Simulated assay, not measured.
Amino acid sequence: MDRDGPLGDSLHDLTEGTTEAVETLVSLWARASQTVSPRLSALQLEALLITRRNPSINLTGLAVEVGAAPPAVSRLCDRLEAAGLLRRQPVPTSRREIGLVLTLRGNEIVDALFARRSELFGDVLTRMPAASRREFLAGLEAFSEAARASDFNSGEQA
């Protein structure tokens, strides 16, 4: 693997710079999450987002996605259901399987979160030169592609 960037930067320097920039990005991301009402934990928000992306996901699937044990995810879903954000319902293709779906209120919260994230990120992006915005997006897309190509679950690197 190439250890030096095009400008002679070491991989270490690039890693450090990336880490600092991502900390700012994550802070902005978290700030958007704090504006959602009702206030939800990061895990609760993650469960809502995963359920939205995967309609009728079951408890086991959600547990795998969030990296938690099924009993803990069941309790998490109990709390989200009690708050009126999530609903358990039979899966049409299986009489025994129970799927998870967002309620109207759950969808409204996710929509509000996406809108707030877009607003915060848009504010920052407008302060960047247009060329830098394009480079930023290209870099994030390349980073995402490289991350998807890696097998992080087994601890191996691509």
Rank of each mutant, 00 (worst) to 15 (best):
M1L: 10
D2P: 06
R3W: 00
G5I: 14
L7G: 14
G8W: 04
S10I: 13
L11A: 13
L11E: 15
H12P: 00
L14A: 03
L14D: 02
L14G: 02
G17I: 12
T18Q: 13
T19G: 06
V22L: 13
L25V: 05
V26C: 00
S27E: 14
Q34S: 15
T35K: 10
V36R: 07
V36W: 07
S37D: 13
P38Y: 11
P38A: 10
R39K: 09
A42G: 07
L45Y: 06
L45G: 02
A47E: 01
A47N: 04
L49P: 01
P55W: 07
I57A: 03
I57S: 03
L59A: 05
L62A: 04
A63H: 00
A63Q: 04
A63S: 11
V64T: 10
G67N: 12
A69Q: 10
P70T: 09
P71T: 02
A72C: 09
A72V: 10
V73D: 00
L80G: 00
A82W: 12
A82Y: 11
G84F: 09
G84A: 12
G84L: 08
L85M: 11
L85K: 04
L86H: 02
L86N: 01
R87G: 00
R88T: 03
P92C: 01
T93F: 03
R95Y: 11
R96G: 08
R96A: 10
I98W: 11
L100E: 04
T103G: 08
R105D: 15
G106S: 07
G106Q: 03
E108V: 08
I109F: 03
V110T: 06
L113V: 14
F114A: 11
E119V: 03
T126Q: 12
A130D: 00
A130L: 08
A131V: 13
S132F: 14
F136G: 01
F136H: 04
F143D: 14
F143C: 09
S144T: 14
S144W: 12
A146W: 04
A147W: 04
A149F: 13
S150F: 12
N153V: 09
N153E: 13
S154I: 07
S154M: 09
